[in-house]
Amino acid sequence: MAEELSKPFDKSAMTLQERAEHSKETRIQIISFAFMIGLTVLSFLAVGTEVLATGFVVPFILLLGVIQFFLQLFYFMHLKDKDHGWPNMLFSSGLVLSAPVVISLILLLGIVKW
């Protein structure tokens, strides 16, 4: 077994069904990439054209950022796939810990100024 681990293969063991799923997956990835480009262009335009009020632009670009964040995680990093229960659990616990970190640092350094 040990030497087989570093032996290249002359073919893939993918079944026809797996091949179909693979090309579907490729399509999905390219579509999500197009979405991400669209979101990025939209948020840069929202700020760059300076036609929108600041009070609207800030929550708008933050929302676009959050959407793109989840697109990256679930599509490019495959969190949407099955067998990703542990990564999902780990990463969401990371987000749960990150939220109070960011909020308390903003409050302590930026507003209360201890």
Binding site: S98, A99, V101, L105, I111
Partner: peptide, 9 residues
């Protein structure tokens, strides 16, 4: 997150 929080503050 700690670096983002520091920057935002």
């Amino acid at each position: 997150a700690t670096f983002f929080g520091t920057f935002l503050g």
